Amino acid sequence: MPTLAGSVIDVTTTDRGRSMMAGPGMMSGSMRLTADRATVVHGKLTFLVTNAGTIPHEMLVVPLAGTQSAGTRPVGRDGRVDEAGSLGEAAATCAEGEGDGILPSATGWVTLDLQPGRYELFCNLPGHYWAGMYTELTVT
């Protein structure tokens, strides 16, 4: 892994390791995406995402508008939320940026220059957002 730029935020994705299908393409709230802190100082930030689960995951960074809370985005019929406004994602195994998902026991990362505000970090693989894979980050 190369030297990571800026402040590093450790993000962990987890799942229960068995099928969590609750309906067509949907999963019950049994997955998590957590960051090692809830507040960071603005500027260059690297999100180092470790998949501690048993299936692939990813992490997107999207600004939260106004009083919007993490976990409130509408989930489409495909089990995903709208990625409009995404500033970047960590979805490549042992690499930076976009890919097909971070495989179990592996890491991926993305470096962004974030301005002050509130952001939602989430996994947008089908059913994962609905299953609880999101958290909020405040940038001061």
Rank of each mutant, 00 (worst) to 15 (best):
L4P: 02
G117K: 00
G66L: 03
R16A: 08
T13V: 14
A38C: 10
T50K: 13
T93S: 07
A22W: 15
V110G: 00
P126H: 11
T54D: 13
A38N: 10
P2C: 13
D10K: 12
T46Q: 11
S105Y: 06
L4N: 04
Y119Q: 03
I102G: 00
L103V: 09
M133Y: 05
A131R: 06
V81P: 01
V62Y: 04
C94H: 10
D82Q: 05
S105E: 13
G117F: 02
L64V: 02
R77K: 10
A52M: 11
R16P: 12
E98C: 10
W109P: 00
A92M: 07
A70P: 04
G99P: 05
G6C: 11
L137P: 04
E89A: 11
Q68E: 13
N124A: 09
Y129R: 02
N124L: 07
R32K: 15
S86L: 09
A22K: 13
P63L: 01
T46N: 05
S19D: 15
G132N: 07
L121Q: 01
E136R: 09
S30D: 15
E89N: 09
T39E: 13
G79T: 03
D113S: 10
L60D: 03
D113F: 06
A84Q: 11
G23H: 14
A22Q: 12
R37H: 09
K44S: 15
L4A: 06
G43R: 05
Q68T: 07
C123H: 03
L48W: 08
A70L: 03
P74Q: 09
R18A: 14
T72V: 03
Q68R: 12
M26T: 14
T54W: 13
A90D: 00
L121M: 02
T107W: 06
Y119K: 01
I55A: 14
A84V: 13
G85I: 10
E136V: 11
M27R: 15
G53D: 01
G97T: 05
G25D: 08
G53Q: 09
R37M: 12
G25P: 04
N124G: 04
D82R: 08
A65S: 12
S28K: 12
L137C: 07
E58R: 10
Y134P: 01
V62L: 05
A5S: 14
G23E: 15
H42I: 05
T34Y: 08
G6I: 12
T3W: 10
A84F: 11
G117D: 06
V110H: 00
L48C: 05
T111K: 01
D36V: 07
L103G: 08
M20E: 15
P63Q: 04
Y129P: 01
W130Y: 13
G71M: 04
S30G: 15
G17D: 07
G117H: 02
G79W: 03
R118K: 06
A22L: 15
L125E: 04
G132L: 07
V8K: 04
L125Q: 10
G71Y: 08
D113E: 12
T135R: 01
G85T: 07
D10M: 12
M20S: 14
